[in-house]
Design a protein around this nucleic acid. Structure first.
Lengths: 223, 223
DNA sequence: AGCGAATGCTGTACGGTGTGCGGAGATAAG
DNA sequence: CTTATCTCCGCACACCGTACAGCATTCGCT
């Protein structure tokens, strides 16, 4: 065991984890972009530059935030016996965790998917698809496809929610979407207008699972 | 025909289109976030506030930019006789146009998919799927699924390109990706490490088309 | 032609952002 | 105690979006 090797200087007032907590809270309450270094510092009652003691710059904060969310996901592995059940549970869990923090979703699509937790998630996907009987090459393609679908679906879902996505209950979101969609001129977009009543209701868990099933059905599973 | 109804005041020095041209050029040369109002104005040789004459605020610029890109896509409709060929051509065309402007891709995922051109694109998708024999409800779900896949794939593709995506040729991007991926510790992520050689090469048109085929194969087409 | 009203562009200004630099104080090692 | 090191802070810079007021231009109308 490496001795902690105490270093000189005053005691630290914060921890990296506290910084990330504050950042995530700000993202949840005030939406994406609210996790500015100055606001984080203000919440923690500290000077803006003190934050740089714990994380080198803003992109490091975003990366660490993504790693924390993915780490929580990875640490709650289901580990059943059916690969498809496990995969669906994993996908649903990721969606639940990300829609709980809509402000953090843009970070995932912004290129912060390089950390070890992201790699571990990819590894788990590859493992699940190997259990499904796919070859290594098929599993690699399939894992990437699933990642694309899952992240794309979540991103589109949180993007059309104008504000405070975590707070609005499902029915209100449906009503708001139906109101917005019923503005489409039926003369120009007949099929879109005709599908409004259908469309407005199923965006959410229903459509997420339906799409996931279509993707999984399309995989060349041999088992 | 409504008479143009000439208004008082000095002649306009710019056009909305010129503003959008400058914004897109900045996005292409200096990456996402480079299309700031001040930089746009500087390129056009005009005061920052003059930009507000043509577009009400920054989000309007982003929305109009997305509408332009989607409008170009919609105006280049293939219109063949096989729905699946047309759909693949449309998906490939969208990817080609967006990867040519990687800095603009985050705008699509940022909620700027509400304009008429976006609606028209959705309508075209619904039409293609209706030609495929899908019911209205199936077509609605399928169109959304395809949109999720296409946008997700493009977003992930341009996200991992660190910089100047449009300029780097395919081989350089592959080499850079292989170098980055070969850093993953094989002890922790055996499957990921084993798949590096495969993975590094196919991200691009290959994997994009493979995933699209899997998605389309999964659709409940009856024709 | 003259005039009033509407319009485009500009300069100034405010509050926000990330972050580099230097200093003051606290702490541990020698 | 001295000295090296570290934490936190205040200041400063360069940007950002944009609100406001002023000035010059150009129209429609008389």
């Amino acid at each position: 065991m490496t001795e902690p090797r105490r270093r000189p200087g005053p005691k630290r007032a914060l921890t990296e984890e506290a910084v990330l907590d504050a950042a995530l809270t700000l993202l949840d309450t005030d939406g994406p972009g609210a996790a500015s270094i100055r606001r984080i510092a203000a919440v923690l009652g500290v000077s803006p530059n003190s934050v740089y003691t714990y994380l080198p710059d803003k992109s490091a904060i975003e990366q660490a935030l993504v790693e924390r969310l993915l780490g929580d996901l990875n640490r709650a592995a289901p580990g059943g016996d059916d690969w498809r059940t496990d995969l669906e549970a994993l996908a649903l869990d990721l969606r639940r965790r990300l829609t709980a923090h809509p402000g953090a979703v843009p970070l995932l699509l912004g290129g912060a998917m390089n950390g070890p937790e992201a790699l571990l998630l990819g590894e788990r996907l590859l493992d699940l698809l190997a259990r499904a009987g796919l070859s290594a090459a098929e599993a690699a393609r399939g894992a990437y496809l699933i990642m694309v679908y899952v992240l794309g679906a979540i991103a589109l879902e949180v993007a059309d929610v104008p504000r405070a996505g975590a707070l609005a209950p499902e029915e209100d979101r449906i009503a708001a979407r139906r109101a917005a969609m019923s503005q489409v001129p039926a003369a120009m977009f007949p099929r879109t207008a005709a599908a409004v009543d259908v469309t407005a209701t199923w965006i959410g868990t229903d459509q997420y699972l339906w799409g996931l099933h279509r993707v999984l059905d399309g995989l060349p599973t041999h088992a």
